[in-house]
Amino acid sequence: MADAVAPTQIADVPLSGVIGMPIGHSKSPRLHGHWLKHYGINGHYVPMSVMPEHLAEVLRVLPFAGFVGLNVTIPHKEAVLTLADVVTDRAALIGAANTLIFRPDGKIHADNTDGYGFIANLRQYAPDWQADAGPAAVIGAGGAARAVVASLLDSGVHELRITNRTRLRAEQIKGEFGARVVVYDWAQAGNMLDGAATAVNATSLGMTGKQPFRIPLDALSPDAVATDLVYTPLMTPFLEGAQQRGCRIVDGLGMLLHQAAPGFERWFGQRPEVDEAARAAVLE
């Protein structure tokens, strides 16, 4: 669970934003811009392209330049942990942060809300989903997958199956998260889905411009809930295949929306609604 966070002191015109390299693809400015306008908040959300060698300097300056916090994306999600003054338990466990809160004294609080966003998305669009309904199967072992693994285990999944092209990364996750994690060879990824109640694609396979998703879904039960972290396209090959099997499917856009809500609340003092208007704003 995350450590308790004192509310950020709201500046006269609070500023927040997202840092990464590159940053032009980020949909966060659309989402936060929508929420700022919807709630009539006099604030701004700024996308910033920051080179890794400039990260520490940027983070030292922004808390004293009207910024109340930031979202963090590739390639800075791991590096910011070493620069933060306070790191939540879940960010430390995952090994990455996606949300920074700047305190009035300039100290930086680092959190990871990806796992929260993942579970909130499942609960919104598959409201009868139960973590303990059966094994969960996770394809991929990168940073996003680590957040998914942590959140599923925390929610009560009894057995979590994981596979990755590089088996070592999956073994590392097992070593850190314990005996409930079972590693499968990449060649056995299709078999891993047999009997799974929850199936997750946490790779970029099937994403626009990336390699295709070719893992067979024949073993996937029609009773399973399938979700993809990819949201470009919204209906990914993995979700199409799962839907054809009769599964309930949950697209990845909701995770993006839900993971953003805690940061927005801490920065601007308003808990935003994750609704169809927010989805539409991001998809414009």
Score class of each variant (00 low, 15 high):
F264R: 09
A197I: 02
A197H: 05
G252K: 01
L160H: 05
P75L: 15
A131G: 00
T8C: 09
Q259R: 01
P7Q: 07
P216S: 10
L100W: 07
Q270F: 11
E57C: 01
V68E: 11
C247N: 04
N121M: 04
R248S: 06
K107C: 11
R123Y: 01
L217C: 12
D114N: 06
R165N: 13
V230N: 01
A278F: 07
G190T: 14
A145T: 05
E276T: 02
A150Y: 02
A92H: 02
D3I: 07
V80E: 12
A179E: 15
I215T: 11
F213M: 03
I23Q: 07
I74A: 10
K174W: 09
S26D: 10
W129Q: 05
P222H: 08
D12A: 11
L31N: 00
S28N: 06
A126G: 06
K27M: 12
Y39R: 04
P212C: 06
I249L: 03
A170Q: 03
G20E: 08
V80W: 11
A179I: 04
L62N: 04
I23M: 07
L220N: 00
V225R: 00
I41P: 04
R103L: 13
Y116F: 14
F64K: 12
N164T: 08
T8S: 08
L217E: 12
P47K: 04
S155T: 15
K174P: 03
A126S: 14
S221N: 04
A197W: 05
T166L: 15
G206C: 14
F268Y: 15
